[in-house]
């Protein structure tokens, strides 16, 4: 069950994993996610499904090494198995022919926006992709996204590759030039999504974001993932993960994401020094 086929670093701290999950591979649609748990003592973490191969029965995920669980995940090898994989969860992205769509991805969010790009292109949209990372070495999926987009703009914060600056500046420039944009998808770190929404809101361009809230069961049972959208409390796991970005309370999201910062640091440190026994 859930045997790992490939676990390959795409950059210093971003990893692509392919593993067997035939039932989910048959069923999943763009925008959905899984919850995985590595072993008996592991925590449940949600990760967006980046790709799937129904024939081979495999799923692809892309994750960033940020703490103990993702560090452990990155050390697993082809042939190892994940103890638990649950899914597909969340609502699929509402894909239709919007016309001209801009897909913005930042950091590991580039992996999450990729399946949307593929699905949007397939639905007949003109897809313009803007992807960014801190520096050239951290950039992922440039080739794959390029192949599925009508236009691709790459940015790096430090200017080591592509456009020097943030993805939001590129989008702002497009709008300033009067380019027609019918729909925007923005997935990445919370500050990036917030800025993209600030850019599009004055122009009334519908902007969909995918939220990465903390989850436990991910089936609507616990409410750990609650967010405020349009002043109403929503559960990211069952009401989302995608929401109208102009309605999302990003401050609350970013606060709540910090809930376990200290615990996570403690666990990660103990893991790195080998004093947690696993």
């Amino acid at each position: 069950m859930n045997k790992i086929v490939e676990n390959k670093k795409l950059s210093e701290n971003v990893v692509k994993m392919v593993f067997e999950a035939p039932v989910i591979a048959q069923k999943r649609k763009a925008g959905q996610f899984i919850v995985l748990k590595i072993d008996e003592k592991g925590e449940r973490i949600p990760l967006t499904i980046v790709d799937s191969d129904a024939q081979k029965g495999t799923l692809t995920i892309i994750y960033q090494i940020v703490g103990k669980t993702t560090a452990k995940l990155s050390q697993m090898k082809a042939g190892d198995s994940l103890q638990d994989v649950q899914g597909p969860l969340g609502n699929p992205t509402e894909i239709e022919n919007f016309g001209r769509v801009v897909c913005v991805g930042g950091g590991v969010g580039v992996g999450v926006v990729y399946p949307l790009i593929v699905a949007l292109k397939k639905a007949g949209n003109e897809v313009i992709s803007i992807i960014g990372s801190r520096t050239k070495d951290l950039l992922i999926l440039e080739k794959e996204i390029g192949e599925n987009s009508d236009r691709l703009i790459v940015t790096t914060d430090d200017g080591s590759y592509g456009v020097h600056g943030f993805v939001s500046a590129v989008l702002q420039e497009m709008i300033d030039k009067g380019e027609k944009i019918d729909h925007v998808f923005a997935i990445g770190p919370v500050p990036m999504m917030r800025v993209i929404c600030d850019v599009t809101k004055p122009h009334g361009i519908k902007t969909v974001v995918s939220l990465n809230s903390i989850m436990v069961d991910a089936t609507g049972m616990c409410g750990a993932c609650r967010v405020s959208v349009g002043g109403k409390t929503k559960f990211t796991c069952v009401d989302g993960p995608e929401f109208d970005g102009h309605e999302v309370d990003f401050k609350l999201l970013s606060d709540r994401l910090k809930t376990y910062c200290e615990s996570e640091r403690e666990a990660y440190e103990k893991h790195r020094c080998g004093c947690d026994g696993n």
């Binding site: 449940r44 615990s263 666990a267 103990k270 026994g277």
Partner: peptide, 13 residues
């Protein structure tokens, strides 16, 4: 379920 009372032996905080 997640045995958070045994954190950090168990990973859930």
């Amino acid at each position: 379920l997640m045995k958070a009372y045994r954190f950090p032996e168990y990973d859930t905080p």
